[in-house]
Nucleic acid binder design. Structure first.
Length: 563
RNA sequence: CGGGGUGUGGCGCAGCCCGGUAGCGCACCUGCUUUGGGAGCAGGGGGCCGGAGGUUCAAAUCCUCUCACCCCGACCA
């Protein structure tokens, strides 16, 4: 591709509305432009990156027996009503009516359509297993699009669905996907972790997420470097260090104006980990519940919601007073009538808790003695706590979710009637799995993980082109002729090359080459006239070879390194 | 949905507090010079100052409402 006639609008300055590194660089390098919040145009270079990624995805999905299909973007409400998600999903689904007033929606995922299709076309256990996949646009009215291409309202997604007769077969399909995903991300050149995840509203039998470490990530994972335990913090277990043993008797103490853990512990001269944080939540169906975590811990709302099996929200101040008779900052579990759930860390020990009397706390309180409660893992894992598997200290990292895999079970096949007859002639619901990959997130993660002050440094496999051919003296006929010949020889050798044939000053071309970040730069300039050589340089290491024009192809391969 | 911020030529910004009819850098067009890390000089084109009301002799500037976008949080199937 020739730069002079291409749409590669590079920007000298950072766009004002971009914060994340990948966002800034993808806009500056001319890969994408924003049309509206969370809605992006992919320009030629950006499109080529997506094409590279989706080509890898296709190869690996085909390799495990995937069959590519295209499912509609526009769905009738009926199938979503059948699965129950028409009501379960709120504002995040784009809804509309057709001219006849029928309810429709835009597809945010395709379990319903797959189950619908399976219900019609799959009848016998002999038809199983099936793996169907598509690479197609998804629409989700995100509450808050952000970080450029990382969280958008319209995005490309590879989604696949497995259909099996039983859970054992699902486990095999799931394992095949897990392995294929690792191959895909390895080939794309991104670093990632495979972590246990919360199946959330997808429901089902288990799930994993593929997470690319990056400061721009929205999720956090807890990782054990000793044994390999890794989980989303939404679900990660961890073993906090216990506070020193205490034997003090229960006593009420005045704590005027001390409302926060920090204030109470300072007033009493105690470490925060000797106190208990009491939080009143309201569950949608079960009503108020008092959740307890240690003073130095943070309650993870997803963990509470998962424990209760329904969504929760913090209680309003007047609800707190109504249920417990005291204001925020003075509440505790002793003598209350609402159900109490306590974090595992509170099983043993004596604690400082709110007295349910404004301005007072209780010291020396024990779970099971002074109040009754259910124990569960409720606190968010933090770095340094013990690994639940081996006890080594956990690390917590920010990550970008680039893929996920879910064992769905029969959650969609039953309501949509996707049944088969088994060998015994008995009707059974198909056991499903669903699996997603976000190509744009892979691209953004690659940029986040691989860039420098001058621009992007693309991994070879997903770079929009492999080589950036810079013609320094566009008006020097000898240089121009040599560059043309090199351009043809590179393409002939299978090295995809962007030829900067613009009549620009060298500095502009070099800056743009660094910004766009193709793995190898080939410079045709004055060195050609002086020494008969051109320069072949690695974007990543900046190592440079000077070779005669005939040696460029070999030099590009050498400089690019393995892969 | 809560909190914070920003909207002024294509991009990045100043002007707003203290009202007087819009400016800078880059980009763009023409000419000359220049050509290995975002060139110089000269000339030139381009702006409903996000939108709607209001105050005023006069509004980018003050007031009210509204829209859009960004950031933090909530949410994230």
């Amino acid at each position: 591709m020739r730069f002079a006639k291409s749409l590669i609008p590079t920007l000298r300055e950072d766009p004002a509305d971009a914060e994340a590194i990948s966002h800034r660089l993808m806009v500056r390098a001319g890969l994408v432009r924003q049309l509206a919040a969370g809605i992006y145009v992919y320009l030629p270079l950006g499109q080529r990156v997506l094409d590279k990624i989706t080509a890898i995805v296709r190869e690996e999905m085909n390799a495990i027996g995937g069959q590519e299909v295209t499912l509609p973007v526009l769905h009738p409400a009926e199938i979503w009503q059948q699965s129950g998600r028409w009501d379960a999903i709120g504002d995040e689904m784009f809804r509309l009516k057709d001219r006849n007033g029928r309810d429709m929606c835009l597809g945010m995922t395709h379990e319903e359509v797959v189950a619908w299709l399976a219900a019609r076309e799959i009848r016998s256990y002999r038809d199983l297993p099936q793996i169907w996949y598509q690479i197609q646009t998804k629409e989700r009215d995100e509450a808050r699009p952000r970080s450029g291409v990382l969280r958008t309202r319209e995005f490309l997604m590879k989604d696949s669905y497995t259909l099996d007769l039983d859970v054992a077969a699902l486990d095999r399909a799931y394992a095949a996907h897990k392995a294929a995903y690792c191959t895909i991300f390895d080939r794309c050149g991104v670093r990632y972790l495979v972590v246990e995840s919360d199946p959330g509203m997808m429901g089902g039998l288990g799930s994993h997420e593929f997470m690319a470490p990056s400061a721009a990530g929205e999720d956090e994972v807890a990782v054990c470097r000793a044994c390999g335990y890794a989980a989303n913090v939404e679900l990660a277990r961890s073993v906090p260090a216990p506070p020193p043993p205490a034997t003090e008797a229960r006593v009420e103490v005045a704590t005027p104006n001390a409302k926060t853990i920090a204030e109470v512990s300072a007033l009493l001269g105690l470490e925060p980990r000797r106190t208990v944080k009491s939080l009143l939540y309201v569950a949608a169906k079960a009503g108020p519940v008092l959740a307890l975590v240690r003073g130095d811990h943070t309650l993870h709302e997803r963990k509470l919601a998962r424990l209760l099996g329904e969504e929760v929200r913090p209680a309003h101040p007047d609800e707190v007073r109504g249920a417990l008779g005291a204001g925020l900052g003075s509440i505790g579990p002793v003598g209350v009538t609402v159900p109490v759930v306590a974090d595992e860390a509170l099983r043993a020990g004596r604690w400082v808790v709110g007295a349910n009397r404004d301005g007072y706390h209780l010291r020396g309180v024990s779970a099971g003695v002074d109040f009754e409660c259910r124990f569960a893992d409720l606190h968010a894992a933090v770095a340094g706590e013990g690994c639940p598997e081996c006890g080594a200290p956990l690390a917590v990292e920010r990550v970008i979710e680039i893929g996920n895999i879910f064992k769905l079970g029969t959650k969609y096949s039953v309501p949509l009637g996707a049944m088969v007859l088994d060998e015994a002639g008995k009707e059974r619901p198909i056991v499903m799995g669903s699996y997603g990959i976000g190509p744009a997130r892979i691209a953004a993660a690659a940029v986040e993980q691989s860039h420098d002050a001058d621009g992007i440094i693309w991994p070879w496999a997903i770079a929009p082109f492999h080589a950036h051919l810079v013609l320094v003296g566009a008006r020097d006929q000898a240089q121009a002729d040599a560059a043309e010949a090199i351009y043809r020889s590179l393409w002939a050798a299978g090295i995809e090359t962007l030829f900067d044939d613009r009549d620009e000053r060298p500095g502009v071309k070099f800056k743009d080459a660094d910004l766009v970040g193709l793995p190898v730069r080939v410079t045709v300039g004055t060195a050609l006239a002086k020494g008969g050589v051109v320069e072949v340089r690695s974007r990543r290491t900046r190592a440079e070879l000077r070779v005669p024009p005939g040696g460029v192809v070999a030099a590009v391969r050498e400089v690019a390194g393995p892969g």
